[in-house]
Computed example of a mutant assay.
Amino acid sequence: MSGVAGWKAVDPKWSAVDGLVEDVLLEDDAELAACIARSKEAGLPDIAVSPAQGRFLQMLVELTGATRVLEIGTLGGYSTLHLARGVGEGGSVVTLEARKTYAAVAQANFDASAAGGRVEMQIGAALKSLAKLEGPFDLTFIDADKPNNCNYVDHALRLSRPGALIIVDNVVREGNILDPAEDDESAKGTRALYHYVAAEPRLEATVLQTVGEKGWDGMMFLKVTD
């Protein structure tokens, strides 16, 4: 799960359990390992989902039968590749990335992956890209700048079919959402998302808290009901 350097605290046991999951349950994967390596070599921040969370996202796509997926926030493309694997050969993923430097790394990772041909990346401010997109999408994964969370969910709702799933990452933030500091725009934007979702009758929602190598955080799951 994405984090922000400087705010995540990690218990050694959390990381050890993640290591056990990866060693025992997740097979060695040269493509994904190369994706992580390229991102690290390029100096991208270490805020991508963990391997276990990436597999979780892939399985959610498979279990929901999603074939058209939207991702807001590409980074190096690690989560994107899991989503692309999940949609299968006939599916597609549209991913949005604002930074050209990140997009270049992600494209290299897509080009080197068997599932990379299922990905369409749009480069530029996500809100501008979203305004031009046409739905419907079966599943949306949001992992971008947190102050715009409400705007991103609003667009995702517009672009989703009834019954679609919207997932928002980093919605616990070490508990900082409980009483966001005045200068913590990410926590403030995330807390606002809770109230936005609660007031939106077309969404059913819950949050699962997580701990692991990425610290204490969580994902919000939104079902589009209408």
Rank of each mutant, 00 (worst) to 15 (best):
E41S: 11
E27R: 10
S2R: 06
K188P: 13
A199I: 01
V69C: 08
A34S: 15
G77F: 03
D169T: 04
A37N: 02
D11V: 03
L25I: 04
K146G: 09
V153G: 04
A42Q: 03
E120Q: 06
A34F: 06
V4M: 11
T225I: 15
V49P: 05
E204S: 13
E41D: 14
I36W: 12
E89F: 02
E97A: 07
I166E: 12
D179E: 15
A164K: 01
T95M: 05
V153S: 06
D28M: 00
D23Q: 15
E41T: 13
Q209E: 15
D183W: 05
L83P: 09
Y196G: 03
K8H: 15
E213C: 12
D111M: 02
G91Q: 10
G189T: 05
K214V: 06
A108M: 04
G77C: 02
T140A: 15
L157I: 11
E27T: 10
T95G: 12
A199H: 00
S92W: 00
Q209V: 06
I167Y: 01
S129H: 08
G135L: 01
E200G: 03
R173C: 12
A144N: 07
V61G: 09
L130W: 07
P51N: 04
V211F: 11
A115R: 00
E22C: 12
P147L: 12
L193F: 10
I166K: 01
G215F: 09
V171H: 09
L75P: 14
P12R: 00
V93F: 08
V94P: 14
G6Y: 09
H155K: 05
D179N: 14
A48W: 09
A125G: 02
F110I: 08
T80K: 00
A98T: 12
D183E: 15
R55N: 07
R55C: 03
Y196C: 04
G90I: 00
E31N: 07
E22R: 12
E31A: 10
Q209H: 14
S186A: 15
V172D: 09
A192V: 08
D111R: 05
A9T: 15
L130I: 04
W14L: 07
D179C: 01
M1S: 12
N151Q: 13
